[in-house]
């Protein structure tokens, strides 16, 4: 196992940040922790990167215990905190060589690993890190986390605050790193990114709700979801919530996602109900289940 977490719990004063969390990550896997803000993702990261000690339970990274062998872990993992935490007043190049030096290596030694990413920020290597754009900061931080060729990479919300194009690029980079044999644990609040992971753990309020591959999670969702659209979206949500057999109703992009309590419910009845409520241009169709739908139901 690359990462193994057994029943860990951690409280800050009276607030339970994570509660009996367990999961395992296989070598070479891209594993995602998916959950809203405050779910406890960062706490898990800080425990696995030896910055925080658990109240209960054990955890190990590349077979090293996070408490006993913390020194070995620090040598073999790369960590990219959610907040940009490189030296803003050092240049891109200085940051990189600084981190290479404290890991006892050089940029040249592991250049192959970071080449793809570094090439994109190389034109700005004389620029101070603080003056970089969000996407470039992210790439530099990734380079610094990779400079000592870690076995496991921890990325805490790496795409928060990054534009959609850079986000897409970033995930492509992660896929390439994965192919080089690096185990990656990534957290994100964006549900659409979940489908890019090999396996995900859905987390809420410090508890793991589900662990599986994104495909299996959506495939195993037994309820049928309908996309519903009409001219008056706000009224539509209100009216659907008043429909006697509704299970859940929520906005999803341009559509309203509607789930009925009854598996055999009749679409015609719903359409008639909505027409009766003076809705026009009504569209009702089966939707493709996404991670977000599953999450909303948990």
């Amino acid at each position: 196992m690359s990462i193994s977490v057994q029943n860990i719990s951690k409280s800050y004063k009276n607030i339970k940040a994570i509660d009996a969390v367990s999961f395992e990550v296989n070598p070479g896997e891209l594993f995602g922790l998916i959950g809203p803000d405050g779910a406890g993702k960062t706490t898990i990261f800080r425990i696995l990167t030896t910055l925080l000690i658990t109240d209960e339970g054990t955890a190990s990274v590349v077979d090293y215990d996070v408490v006993k062998d913390y020194k070995a872990i620090r040598n073999s993992v790369g960590y990219m905190p959610g907040k940009f935490s490189l030296y803003q007043d050092l240049t891109v190049e200085e940051n990189l060589s600084f981190f290479a030096t404290i890991f006892g290596t050089t940029i040249e030694e592991n250049y192959e690993l970071i080449k793809d990413i570094y090439i994109q920020i190389e034109p700005f290597k004389k620029r101070r890190a603080g003056a970089l754009s969000g996407g470039m900061k992210q790439k530099l931080a990734l380079c610094c986390a990779l400079i000592h060729a870690p076995k496991v990479l921890f990325l805490d919300e790496p795409t928060t605050g990054v534009d959609p194009v850079s986000r897409k690029e970033f995930w492509q980079m992660l896929k390439r790193l994965q192919r080089k044999g690096i185990t990656i644990l990534v957290s994100t609040p964006y549900m659409d990114e979940a489908s890019l992971c090999d396996r995900i753990a859905l987390i809420q309020k410090g508890k793991v709700l589900k662990i599986d591959s994104p495909q299996a999670i959506t495939a195993n969702y037994e309820k049928v979801i309908y996309d519903i659209q009409s001219k008056n979206t706000h009224g539509l949500i209100h009216d659907l919530k008043n429909y006697p057999s509704h299970y859940s109703v929520y906005a999803f992009g341009e559509f309203i996602h509607y789930i009925d309590k009854n598996a055999d419910f009749n679409l015609k009845d719903l359409e008639a109900y909505l027409e009766n409520k003076n809705h026009s241009e009504i569209i009702i169709k089966k939707a493709i289940t996404t991670i977000e739908d599953v999450f909303m139901d948990l």
Partner: peptide
Amino acid sequence: EVGTLEQINVTPI
């Protein structure tokens, strides 16, 4: 405050 300490702490320094 800046957060660099967090990054430094994960290193073997």
